[in-house]
Amino acid sequence: MKKTILSLMAIMLFAAACGTKKTAVAETAPAEKEIKAKELTPELAAGKSLYENSCARCHKLYEPKAYTKTEWTPILVKMGKKAKLDETQMASITSYIDSQL
């Protein structure tokens, strides 16, 4: 009986974790968002996508202009380790953040 209950709880927990996905909330107006999207190169767009998808899993997204380049550096290093991002992914996110400052 205990095994059945534990198994059902594990399945429900797994289903709930897989079924919920936090999405990034844009703080800019739709027209501004379209203009910025057109200005991004494919590399910067990939960095933006990584930033939105990797960082929004755990917390709200911050506008790149909320911090200076000097303030972003330790934040990105710390969060990159927590998100288990490789060097290429971190370089892509860093390039995106830097391009928006």
Rank of each mutant, 00 (worst) to 15 (best):
P74C: 09
A15P: 00
A91M: 06
K33Y: 08
K36C: 04
K33Q: 12
K3H: 13
K65L: 06
I11A: 15
A46H: 11
A16F: 13
D86I: 08
M79T: 15
L76S: 08
K21W: 12
C55T: 06
K36L: 11
W72L: 11
L40W: 00
T70C: 01
D86K: 10
T41V: 03
K84G: 02
F14V: 13
A29P: 01
Y67W: 13
A37E: 14
A16H: 04
L40I: 01
P64V: 05
I97C: 10
K21E: 12
A15H: 01
K22E: 12
K3Q: 15
A45M: 09
C18D: 01
K48P: 00
N53I: 00
M79N: 12
K69G: 09
E71F: 06
L50F: 05
A15E: 01
I11T: 14
L44F: 03
P42E: 02
K38A: 15
Y67P: 01
S49D: 09
M1I: 09
S7T: 15
T4D: 09
G19H: 04
Y96R: 00
I93Y: 02
A37H: 07
E39I: 00
L85V: 08
L50I: 07
K69S: 15
A31P: 00
D86A: 07
K36N: 09
C55N: 05
S95M: 06
A26V: 14
S49W: 00
N53Y: 01
K21H: 14
W72V: 10
C18I: 05
A37W: 01
E32K: 08
D86H: 10
W72M: 12
E27F: 11
H59W: 08
T94Y: 02
K82D: 07
E43L: 03
K48I: 00
E32Q: 12
K82A: 13
Y62G: 03
S49Y: 01
E39F: 02
I93V: 15
A29R: 10
E32I: 07
K69I: 14
Y62M: 14
K2A: 11
A16N: 10
C58Y: 05
L40A: 01
Q89H: 03
Y62L: 14
Y96L: 03
E39L: 14
I93M: 06
M79C: 13
A29I: 06
L13S: 15
P42C: 04
T4H: 07
T88R: 11
K2D: 10
T94I: 03
G47Q: 04
G80P: 03
K22P: 10
A17L: 15
G19T: 06
L101P: 03
A15S: 12
L40N: 00
V77W: 02
A45H: 03
E34H: 05
Y96C: 00
T28E: 14
K36Y: 08
L8K: 08
K21V: 14
S49N: 08
C58E: 06
S99D: 05
M79K: 11
S7F: 15
K48L: 03
T28W: 11
G47L: 04
S95T: 11
C55A: 08
A16D: 04
L85K: 07
L101F: 05
K78H: 05
E63G: 07
